[in-house]
């Protein structure tokens, strides 16, 4: 790339250093919304959690909110991690498979791509509602299958949070497929076609071509899925159970408590959730560095 720089008269290119400076400036301007949200959201949440930004009452620095929520935290963290990990795991497997089918092309591949895009477009709130209608004890699925409500397993509000995980996995597998397929569409053909011509089986192409190329997109999108699932509450609230409470559900319940002082505790849980999320990002970063295609 060192050959760039001074060029002949015929080349109207502006000075690349200047161009870079312009791009960098543009990028900084573009980051302003993100900075506003991170500073505003995270900043005020941290301040609120340590008592520096009360809605009512005196400003007083304390870690009371962290201490008072501690007893219930262990089971909540466990529940949240179970939901997020299980949802992410299923979403990765199905999302990657979907991307593979879409990238492989064909009419069925296009249909899978389209219906996956439909799934991405459904808001989680609606996804939870329709998943509830489908999987409830006397929902559409048991009715269609002719299974009595008493014989149907407790998927909605059951001990394993199955309906919650199914909703997240459903939506997020479509998301992962979209991201991974988007990255690979132009790329895989270059490698896959020659591999196919050389007689590689479908399984071999999946292992040798598709997965290595897909790994970075897969890791990034899986990380987004994990931290999104950890931080959002609607699905777990609608399809989950009363006890134990996932972190986000506990945070929103405390946030909406009649007493405004509970908002400090809600903020403390939100800060904790962000901390877990960032730990997940760190793990992903390590995994990313190991993946060969990433620069």
């Amino acid at each position: 790339m060192g050959s760039r720089g001074k060029r002949g008269m015929a080349n109207p290119n502006p000075d690349p250093v200047n161009r870079l400076r312009g791009a960098r400036l543009l990028l900084i301007v573009g980051m302003i919304p993100v900075v506003v949200v991170v500073v505003g959201g995270l900043g005020s949440t941290i301040l609120q959690s340590i008592g520096l930004m009360p809605l009512v009452g005196p400003v007083r620095l304390s870690v009371d909110a962290y201490v008072s929520t501690a007893p219930a935290l262990l089971s909540s963290i466990g529940t949240s991690l179970w939901i997020a990990a299980a949802s992410t795991a299923v979403a990765i497997v199905l999302g990657a498979t979907t991307a593979f089918v879409v990238v492989s092309g064909g009419r069925l591949g296009r249909i899978v791509g389209a219906i996956g895009a439909v799934t991405v477009s459904v808001p989680h709130l609606i996804g939870a509602a329709t998943m509830g209608l489908l999987l409830a004890d006397s929902g559409v699925l048991p009715r269609l299958l002719g299974i009595d409500a008493t014989a149907w397993p407790a998927l909605v509000a059951g001990p394993w949070w199955v309906a919650v995980i199914a909703e997240y996995a459903w939506k997020e597998s479509a998301f992962i497929a979209l991201v991974v397929a988007g990255t690979l569409l132009t790329r895989v053909a270059q490698f896959d076609e020659p591999a196919a011509m050389l007689g590689a089986s479908r399984g071999a192409r999946l292992r040798m071509v598709f997965l290595p190329l897909a790994a970075p997109a897969l890791i990034v999108s899986a990380t987004i899925v994990f931290i999104y699932t950890l931080g959002s509450y609607e699905v777990a609230w609608l399809l989950g159970r009363t006890y134990p409470e996932p972190l986000a559900v506990m945070a929103i319940r405390l946030f909406n408590d009649v007493s405004l002082s509970s908002r400090t505790e809600s903020a403390a849980i939100a800060v904790l959730t962000v901390a877990i999320s960032l730990a997940a990002v760190a793990v992903a970063a390590v995994a990313m560095r190991r993946s060969a295609v990433w620069r």
Partner: peptide
Amino acid sequence: FAPVAIPPF
């Protein structure tokens, strides 16, 4: 990553 990591509310 932060905007995704902060709980929306």
